[in-house]
């Protein structure tokens, strides 16, 4: 029969936090055709022409545009695909 003793109870708690989303960003470059950027955004993201054109114009006017936001892994895939079309694309976390 076990000796009576003191049983320590360790209280634990778990906190879960959603991973912050990542932005996929397309940057302006002086060579790439505007129509090509629009076409790529339509193909990769399924955007209609208006949305793709609008994003392209943001890139053109402001130097960059966030073209997609979401979890990190899909963001990496999007950047890889944008690079495969030779667009200047980066990704950055929405929270530092």
């Amino acid at each position: 029969m076990p000796e009576p003793g003191v049983l320590e109870q360790v209280e634990t708690s778990t906190q879960t936090r959603l991973a912050p989303p990542w932005n996929v960003i397309v940057h302006n470059d002086p060579i790439t055709l505007m129509s090509y950027v629009t076409m790529v955004l339509q193909r990769l993201f399924g955007y209609d022409y208006g949305k793709a054109y609008s994003l392209m114009m943001t890139v053109h006017r402001e130097g960059r545009a966030i073209v997609w936001t979401g979890p990190r892994e899909p963001a990496e895939i999007h950047v890889q695909r944008l690079h495969s079309f030779q667009l200047l694309a980066t990704m950055e976390c929405t929270q530092e």
Binding site: G46, M57, V67, R81
Partner: peptide, 16 residues
């Protein structure tokens, strides 16, 4: 608001 981020999470697949 020109730099709004699209939130679509279901992009169509594409292959260059």
């Amino acid at each position: 608001g020109p730099n709004d981020a699209p939130q679509d999470d279901n992009p169509e697949d594409a292959d260059p």
